[in-house]
Design a protein around this nucleic acid. Structure first.
Length: 578
DNA sequence: GCCGTTTTCGGCCCGACTGTTTTCAGTCG
């Protein structure tokens, strides 16, 4: 099970050591351990107790000791010591784009800064330019960095980035003469939010392409403009777009390189080196004895790059250095795919806040080849979303029965029921018993509730025999609000104990559960439903977002409840209601 | 600090762009 807290501590050790000028390789080792802790399916504390920490990749004698110390004392002495040695102002100043550890330390030391505001003032007063290695342009750049830091959105939801990408690609093709223009980076990896957009292009006239990139519609600033790379900030949010152009024979290598992730690419290049090869964005090359590059052996296609390294092609969404590289020697495990999904069990109609009828939704589900689907309109308390009362619910059943006669897809009469602030449910038991499928979700967010209250709220719902599935469990809305604070160990324990399922809500604004919680749920064997919460027929298509996020968490078909056939699913429902 | 079908010691990924530099360090991805 991943250990996010411990992972953070190792990252902090790495950052602080960097500022203090520590050994760069030792620092990398700490970062590596941080990544391992963040993603390992193993229970780290259990490994610690059994003396098996060093089985984890990148964990050696020194880092194992620190992990053990954390579990025994709750802290890491080395980290406490590092914190004492680093002025917090340096950490603050480092958050300014373009200011790294070296410059931050220099500026804080030379100018006695306490904050970013101090730095801003120093630039305006031209007190930065006298410092060795700084100049007038440095002041300008830092001021621009501070301004951008204040207005740049840190991460953009994937769906918004994909919309922006479409426009960027169209412009580069039309104005830049690009013959290829594809979004790479975390967008191609289907990460739920992205920091920036990387677009790789091929173009007969690279200079023209670069010019088109620098003049993208909506660009508010050109951040860099070279022969092969141009970066601009787009719109109010200053969404950063990096455009790269490479020669056609390097297309595959560049595609691999810019898709990343950084960690994945680093591991690939390490692997290459051991094989006497070297990899960059232009191809895979033989490494000569004197360390210089020799003949090119691959690069035109992505497949050729992986093949040259003795690997099968790895789907982009798995490229996070989560163990995929070693496995790709023989072939990756079979993960869930869109074609495995046999039903969608969370959808709304005009009975509450959807825009289509039961029949329209059923026909849309049928068109996707689904064997079953559930209509899950809101419950009475969700008045803002047109929640049904008991009488309407009964009439809805009649409409569902009528629609069922016209379609083959099995229509379940369900509900998306509010979990009230104290954990009580919004429908009486008798109503729940009359329904085929019950999704229970938190909608009213109480600001005063703390972690314990939030946890109790979900646990009580999980304890109730009438509940099948917890909808969008964290309640996060990407780019708008974070999820509620829960004790997830306790929540998942309750789900496991009572045989309940958890949702991966595929709405691109939610994608909830997130990757880390999905890994945790998988490790505990908790069934996951990937569904869309569709409010219109077209929204069933969002299932792709959910499937991709599930793959990023390495969910196999067997981990996903709605890969079951209707027969299996019916059996599961009966079994868990018995 | 980790690691070994070259190695238990000596390596450790790679390149673009920028600004302040007369040849490169810092930052970023």
């Amino acid at each position: 099970m991943p250990h996010a807290e411990l992972s953070e501590l190792f990252r902090e050790i790495a950052t602080l050591s960097t500022i203090l000028g520590g050994n760069v390789f030792a620092i990398r080792a700490q970062e590596r351990v941080a990544t391992t802790l963040e993603t390992t399916p193993e229970d780290v504390e259990k490994l610690a107790k059994e003396g098996r920490l060093r089985e984890m990749p990148g964990v050696g004698e020194g880092t194992a000791k620190k992990i053990l110390e954390f579990f025994q004392t709750g802290k890491i002495a080395e980290l406490e010591e590092l914190r004492k040695q680093v002025d917090p102002a340096i950490l603050a100043v480092m958050r300014v784009p373009g200011v790294g550890p070296k410059k931050a330390k220099l500026l804080v030391d030379e100018l006695g800064l306490k904050s970013v505001e101090d730095l801003e003032k120093a630039c305006r007063d031209q007190r930065v330019r006298p410092i060795q290695g700084m100049g007038a342009k440095s002041e300008e750049k830092i001021l621009a960095g501070i301004a951008s830091m204040r207005t740049t959105r840190e991460r953009t939801p994937l769906w918004e980035a994909r919309e922006a990408a479409e426009k960027v690609v169209a412009h580069l093709r039309k104005a830049g003469g690009a013959t290829e223009a594809v979004p790479t980076g975390s967008l191609r990896r289907w990460k739920d939010t992205v920091r920036d957009l990387d677009v790789l292009t091929l173009a007969p006239d690279p200079a023209k392409l670069m010019k088109a990139a620098a003049t993208l519609p909506g660009a508010v600033e050109v951040l860099a403009h070279g022969e092969t790379k141009t970066s601009v900030a787009l719109g109010q949010d200053r969404f950063q777009v990096d455009v790269r152009v490479v020669p056609a024979e390097s297309y595959g290598a560049a595609l691999q390189y810019f898709t990343g992730s950084k960690e994945h690419s680093v591991r690939l290049r390490e692997r290459a080196q051991k094989m006497g090869l070297t990899v960059n964005e232009y191809g895979v090359f033989k490494l000569k004895k004197d360390g210089t590059k020799g003949a090119r052996v691959a690069g035109e296609t992505e497949e050729s790059v992986y093949e040259a390294l003795g690997l099968r092609w790895i789907p982009p969404e798995l490229r996070e250095d989560h163990g995929e590289i070693d496995l790709a020697e023989k072939g990756l495990p079979r993960l869930v795919e869109r074609r495995d999904i046999r039903g969608d069990v969370h959808a709304h109609t005009t009975w509450s806040d959807g825009t289509a009828s039961v029949e329209e939704m059923a026909r849309a589900a049928e068109k996707l080849g689904y064997e079953y689907m559930a209509i899950t309109d809101h419950s009475p308390t969700a008045a803002y979303a047109g929640g049904l009362n008991a009488e309407k619910l009964k009439r809805q059943r009649a409409e569902i029965d009528a629609a069922q006669k016209k379609v083959k897809v099995r229509i379940l009469h369900g509900t998306e029921m509010d979990i009230l602030p104290d954990g009580r449910l919004d429908w009486p038991d008798k109503v729940l018993e009359s329904l085929d499928f019950v999704v229970a979700s938190i909608h009213q967010i109480s600001r005063s509730a703390d972690r314990a209250a939030n946890t109790l709220r979900l646990v009580r719902a999980l304890e109730h025999p009438g509940v099948d599935l917890i909808g969008h469990p964290s309640t996060r809305r990407l780019g708008m609000r974070p999820g509620l604070d829960f004790d997830w160990d306790e929540v998942f324990e309750a789900a496991k104990k009572h045989g309940k399922a958890m949702e991966l809500n595929s709405s691109p604004e939610r994608l909830d559960l997130d990757e880390i919680r999905l890994r945790q749920a998988k490790a505990l064997g908790i069934p996951i439903f990937i569904d869309t919460d569709a409010h219109a027929p077209g929204m069933y298509g969002n299932i792709e977002y959910g499937v991709m996020q599930a793959r990023r968490a390495w969910l196999a078909p067997g981990d996903v409840a709605n890969t079951k056939t209707w027969k299996e699913f019916e059996k599961w429902l009966k079994h868990r209601r018995a």
